[in-house]
């Protein structure tokens, strides 16, 4: 239990770090997914820590997983259109959003 708790926090840090450090848009999406999974893990650990196994966090995480797949799909779609429009490499910080 303690182990999974530490795992959740470690994943949280890996996700946060990746989100800020990586320039490639795809990696930012992956980092966000790791980050979200870390929070889900924390919820499920809490469910197990309760005296009676708590189904509410389980339901919350199930809902969260479905919500996340939807946002990930849209983020990927947006990323592909954005990079196609640029016609350039997959990486690089968004140059054309700088000039405003």
């Amino acid at each position: 239990m303690t182990l999974y708790l530490l795992l959740a926090v470690a994943l949280l840090i890996i996700g946060l770090h990746g989100l800020f450090v990586c320039a490639q848009l795809m990696r930012k999406i992956l980092a966000l997914n790791v980050l979200t999974t870390a929070v889900f893990l924390l919820l499920v650990v809490l469910a197990q820590a309760a005296e009676v196994l708590d189904p509410v966090p389980h339901a919350m995480v199930l809902t969260g997983i479905v919500v996340t797949v939807s946002t990930t799909a849209v983020a990927l779609g947006l990323m592909v259109r954005l990079l196609e429009r640029r016609g350039g490499p997959v990486s690089g910080r968004d140059r054309d959003s700088r000039n405003s």
Binding site: L78, L82, S97
Partner: peptide
């Protein structure tokens, strides 16, 4: 607007 939408989304 695509780039702006992307940054907003993140």
């Amino acid at each position: 607007a695509l780039a702006a939408a992307w940054r907003y989304f993140l």
